[in-house]
Design a protein around this nucleic acid. Structure first.
Length: 219
DNA sequence: CTGCAGAGCTTCCTTACGTCA
DNA sequence: CGTGACGTAAGGAAGCTCTGC
């Protein structure tokens, strides 16, 4: 499950693991954006004019028997506004239904439990699609800003090179003596610059971050 | 305890239908 | 009126979990 940031300034992305918690009900609190997206165009679900709402549903429920065994082509059910509203409301509370809830909802909506089940399946798929689209947009924006940042830093590097500044000097944490940059390597785990000399010394945990120890001459 | 079969659920992909521009 | 795009209900395959034997 992915939770999108509530504000653009504090962006944090969690990518869902396929199949994870698939059979568990999802707490509605993590679905803020989801709920916003859940505002759907209910007009699509309008009933054919002429006040045949009940007939419309009944007809389709009877048809199913025939269409399932190679009979006439299946008819498509259109849910009424009220049915859609109730289903949406229920979906907002829970994205999955247990058999009891399904039965109750089906009875309340005058639908078959299978139809309620299918609606929830499709609804989950739609919200996931929406979520994926939003994540895609977010990643696109993030990529854009990172590219821009990369460009800026590259320019900065070029400027520094142009100034013909010598290699950065690192102060040893042990002796407080300047270390040549050639004795440095990047620690893959913490992504800090590690002094080889320091690691060979008495304290193995001695790491030196660039921001604090690299002596960069003032520009 | 372990292995297996079956039921019941899910996701994913697809098809078919209704509506609208 | 015909047509294509789009939204969505429903079918079916495959995978997972749970339960009983």
């Amino acid at each position: 499950m992915a939770v999108l940031p509530s504000s653009p300034s504090s962006l944090e992305l969690t990518i869902s693991m396929p199949g994870f918690a698939s059979s568990q009900s999802i707490p509605s609190s993590g679905f803020k954006s989801e709920v916003i997206c859940a505002v759907r165009n209910l007009d699509i679900n309008q009933v054919p004019s002429g006040g045949v709402e009940e007939e419309w549903i009944t007809m389709n429920m009877e048809d199913e028997e025939e269409s399932s065994n190679g009979g006439p082509p299946r008819k498509k059910l259109r849910l009424t506004k009220e049915q859609s509203r109730l289903l949406e409301e229920s979906f907002r509370q829970n994205h999955t239904l247990n058999p009891k809830q399904k039965e109750n909802l089906a009875m309340q909506l005058k639908l078959k439990p299978r139809q309620v089940e299918v609606w929830f399946q499709n609804r989950r798929a739609r919200s996931k699609l929406k979520q994926t689209e939003m994540e895609c947009e977010f990643l696109k924006r993030r990529f854009g800003s990172l590219t821009e940042q990369n460009r800026r830093l590259q320019r900065e590097v070029e400027e520094l090179r142009a100034m013909k500044v010598g290699p950065p000097t690192v102060i040893s944490p042990n002796s407080c003596e300047p270390l040549p940059a050639s004795t440095l390597s990047m620690c893959p785990r913490c992504e800090r610059v590690t002094s080889n000399a320091a690691l060979k010394g008495p304290t193995k945990t001695a790491t030196t971050t660039l921001s604090t120890k690299v002596a960069v001459p003032p520009l």
